[in-house]
Nucleic acid binder design. Structure first.
Length: 150
DNA sequence: GCCAACGTTGGC
DNA sequence: GCCAACGTTGGC
């Protein structure tokens, strides 16, 4: 799950404990949250447009997708004129903080890993803010994070 | 700031 | 349903 740290960072999640992942306005990303993300699922927290960009921590899904009502709020930056009360159009899961890495695993470091070669996050032109990862990819990145503490 | 690689919109 | 124009994302 990607976020720009100047809008919502892993530190913000650490402080808040949980966060409703609102503001996703892409159908593919939304559908991942609705169809594929279940309570207890593990997630990587990724900082985009950051210095450096990369994985900065771990989270877990603690609430399944429910309507994202910021789409109905005209004052919200996430307002969507096509959303209605009957059909809010957008949904989002809630995630719980698990861990903040001491050091960001930068996208350059991730690209160097053969085990992550096929990771959807690293594919050119991918712009989805919510992306699926495999168990192997997740575990590999957790291992990398542990190594970087030594 | 640049720009490639998308997704979305809307006229037809 | 096509597709040009436009807007956005995000690494660099």
């Amino acid at each position: 799950m990607k976020s720009e740290p100047n809008s919502y960072s892993i530190k913000d999640l650490q402080r808040d404990k949980t966060a409703f992942w609102d503001g996703v306005r892409n159908y593919q990303a939304r559908n991942f949250m609705i169809n594929d993300m279940k309570i207890g699922d593990k997630a990587l927290f990724y900082h985009s447009n950051a210095k450096p960009s990369g994985v900065t921590g771990l989270a877990t899904v603690c609430k399944k997708a429910e309507p994202d009502l910021t789409a109905l709020d005209k004052k919200s930056i996430y307002y969507d004129p096509k959303a209605t009360k009957k059909n809010p159009r957008w949904k989002a899961v809630t995630v719980r903080f698990v861990q903040a890495f001491e050091k960001t695993l930068s996208i350059q470091e991730l690209r160097q890993e053969k085990a992550l070669r096929n990771m959807s996050l690293l594919k050119t032109g991918q712009r989805l803010s919510v992306l699926p990862i495999t168990k192997a990819e997740y575990e590999h990145i957790v291992k990398m994070a542990k190594k970087s503490y030594v």
